[in-house]
Design a protein around this nucleic acid. Structure first.
Lengths: 241, 241
DNA sequence: ACGGTAGGTGTACGGTGTACACCTGTCAAG
DNA sequence: CTTGACAGGTGTACACCGTACACCTACCGT
């Protein structure tokens, strides 16, 4: 009775509980909210206790990314290599979109955990099973780059920029005029992308479309190389002029 | 005499001197060595003095990236859009390779400085002048992604890993065996990439080749879309199955 | 002669990751 | 039942970071 206190004991920590708490916290408050003190407090524990379960913050981040990778759809025997790769990459994308912090975390991580290697291995396997040579598989994976994780490196999107207290329509118009003069080509494609309604320019692009556009462009290019029997010695990398 | 001390006065700081010192320091010791205290000491000044010339660390990083962008070859009227885009992107790549920290800095920066916008604008201009519609220009720039900066997001390369005090050939062989069993496809492409000499697997890929491979693959794909008269309504993004 | 100001100083605060010594409850072996 | 190892939680402390704020000081145009 004295020992087994009636008060419910805190469930003992575990690496898994720590990682899941971190993922939940990051989902809610962003990757910037992940720090040992805050995470420990959330778990009702002193900061240093976490170090019994994760080696340090780096390993914590790695573990969080691994949890996200665990949400990817598993490999399967698709009808053809292209739809299988497409399915898996878009599945990765859905998982990363569920955990918006994962993009930054993946980009900043450098360690190749077993989960990371396993995913890359299964993707490579899809190419190889689809008739790609090992050499070509190597290069096309490089060509995909971070797209295998389901995101394109941001190009145009800027954060909403929580400054500029008063949008002052006069100054705003002047800025727009200066922008149009200095960056006419960006203006031109932004106008096209928003169907002429430039007030929507802050809404960002249709990321999903952009992602699939580039993904399919690459996949189609890969297929052309494969059917053309690409070998390491082919003239120029893609065999064209 | 008392005022104009014979001792040579330190040349007054300036935003430019601060940024150049930071770039030099980062070139020599990596982006991790950039901190206000160390940089100030190098300039023979107290940390807070820097804040008279840069708003804070973020703006410092932005300014450093701008200096690198300043090293890019300027736009020119090339014989065709493809060689012009190719020239500029490969020029960006050379600059980024001269400043290895720039890759990380560019990836982590979110602000679009005039230098960044100017570069993106001139690239967009090359596509538009080459006959791309504004819509298509928008999408192909997304497809290029960070490749416009001259680098592919790292996929395979891991840092040399300064741990593992003794490479212990026995354990090393065991690890290799386990790796081969768990990640057979990665092994297969690594074997191809090193022409069978797996001891070279740590040397990394031929980054230059990988970069141009993917760049040309994308550029060729872009050209196919352009000559096919791609419009926003085309079936699927790339017009193929 | 004087006042404003650009530029450099000094101190201090709140935040971070984590090394290290310590305690404590559990459980298996003696 | 005793004991001792050990996994897991604690408390303190340190070094480092960015930077807010008040200050001082030398210059320069009036």
């Amino acid at each position: 009775m004295a020992q087994r206190s009636a008060v419910t004991r805190r469930a003992p920590l575990s690496r898994d509980r720590v990682l899941r708490a971190a993922v939940t916290r990051a989902d809610a408050a962003g990757i910037g909210s992940i720090n040992m003190r805050g995470l420990a407090q959330e778990l009702g524990v002193v900061p240093m206790a976490l170090y019994k379960h994760v080696a340090g913050k780096d390993e914590l981040l790695d573990g969080m990314v691994d949890l996200v990778i665990g949400e990817f759809e598993p490999p399967a025997a698709g009808p053809d290599w292209k739809s299988e790769v497409r399915r898996r990459v878009l599945s990765a994308r859905r998982a990363v979109l569920r955990h918006p912090w994962a993009r930054l975390a993946i980009e900043s991580r450098t360690r190749r955990t077993p989960a990371v290697l396993g995913y890359m291995d299964s993707l490579a396997g899809a190419f190889l099973a689809g008739g790609f040579s090992a050499h070509l598989t190597h290069h096309v994976m490089h060509a995909l780059g971070n797209r295998i994780w389901g995101f394109t490196p941001e190009l145009f999107d800027a954060p909403p920029d929580a400054d500029a207290p008063a949008p002052d329509p006069e100054a705003r118009a002047a800025m727009a005029r200066e922008f149009a003069e200095r960056y006419p080509h960006i203006l031109q494609i932004a106008t096209a992308a928003t169907d002429g309604d430039l007030s929507r320019v802050g809404d960002g692009c249709d990321e999903q479309f952009e992602f699939e556009f580039a993904l399919d462009l690459l996949l189609d290019g890969f297929d052309r190389l494969r059917v053309a029997g690409w070998t390491p010695g082919s003239a120029r990398s893609t065999g064209s002029a």
